[in-house]
Design a binder for these strands. Structure first.
Lengths: 220, 220
DNA sequence: CAACGTATCAAACAAAAGTTTGTCAGATGA
DNA sequence: TCATCTGACAAACTTTTGTTTGATACGTTG
């Protein structure tokens, strides 16, 4: 069928199939709980394929992470840049900065296409894994988060840097919990909370965190 | 040495040693990543001890959870009750209700005695495990969280129930992230955030979430 | 065509996993 | 004292783990 394709497309096809299955499994179970045999069986490829393409099981984990992480960060930083350039001088709207931080991943969370939704779950679970290579990647990622500080500073000029970091921390927490525990919110609220609309979720999250940040201004 | 002790104290001693080691290991690694061999070796007991005392590895996980979970919940509910009875009629201070929710676990987090600190880390990691028995326990736990809703309602009488649940959700997220990512906050802030003082941490968290909740009042 | 590199495969590998078994020492209770 | 029970132990059991190995087929390149 694909006999006239050069080797590369076919190679990428198998690679991506493995990555898709691994992403899905690592999203719902811990790294140690997923075996390479489960992955290869589900992907319909040979057992040795993972070591052939990714060197090791840990290499596969890293590859799953890298495949989409930069895309997500680019989306975030693009939205941040858009807000900052829309207000070239003077104060920046606080909610706009926070939106740049949390809206892209929330949008991904509700986007089943191209595995975006699965990747967010994967990302959330990865935060707790202790694979050394993956931890190193997350420590590079703090550099990306630090880029939001100038934006926050321009939105809340009177707030000391320390406070801004604390606010960023709590915001990331509320967001992260939304990735992992949204279904629990539906359950605990007996279903009265609508967790289906991405815009609604993002709007509530942004408003909650913006208010939390703004409240510190008066107290410092 | 303890020859004249009846069997029970000695039995409890071995049981607790296993529970302590397991709690510590499950706190820093996923369930699947920890082997019963590691636990028993570290605890200095026989390999078969876990199956003898707890039936299975999963039974051990459940036992670690149950050993302290009720204590923590009792502390929380006690503090909640104290706030509510201090204001028997009329409005209740919002920050008091939130404090009852987050202060006890934050205090535990900084209390190395009796393994309280380790247990908080264990608890945070457990949220992501998919052991069926443990998930069942967490679903019983939502009943405990629902008890905070009357308190929130008396603090924010004009806010619809749906909104209160959302606020509770974001608050739990900020708290949970504080359990798991406090060291990361220190790192990302180049060490300028002081993460050593439990009262400071709790105060910031409470203030942030209270403001986030109060902000919704005007918008509904 | 011939030589080479690449992708796939079944098979085997050694190590580690959770659990079970049988035995033995010691405390308990009649 | 004798029978019984309990806890600890080494050992073995059965699966499952991640990884490696050659062999084979195929496409590309000389």
């Amino acid at each position: 069928m694909s006999s006239q394709l050069s080797q590369n497309p076919r190679r990428e096809q198998v690679r991506d199939r493995i990555l898709d299955v691994a992403e899905r499994m690592f999203a719902s179970q811990s790294f140690a709980a997923v075996s390479v045999r489960h992955i290869t069986a589900e992907a319909g490829v040979n057992l040795a394929a993972i070591n052939y393409y990714f060197g090791s099981k840990a290499g596969l984990l890293k590859a799953v992470f890298l495949r989409r992480a930069t895309d997500l960060n680019r989306e975030r930083l693009g939205q941040l840049q858009a807000v900052l350039t829309a207000h070239p001088s003077g104060p920046v709207p606080l909610e706009g900065v926070i939106r740049a931080l949390v809206e892209p991943p929330i949008r991904w969370m509700f986007d089943p296409s191209r595995g975006h939704a699965v990747f967010i779950q994967f990302l959330a679970r990865c935060q707790m894994e202790d694979e050394p290579e993956l931890k190193a990647l997350f420590y590079e990622d703090v550099e990306h988060l630090r880029r939001f500080l100038p934006g926050l500073q321009r939105a809340l000029p009177t707030l000391p840097e320390t406070e801004l970091y604390w606010c960023l921390h709590f915001t990331l927490g509320a967001m992260h919990y939304t990735f992992t525990h949204l279904e629990r919110l539906r359950f605990i609220s007996n279903g009265i909370c609508d967790i289906q609309q991405p815009d609604e979720v993002a709007a509530r999250l942004v408003e909650f965190c913006a208010a939390g940040m703004a409240a510190r201004v008066g107290r410092i």
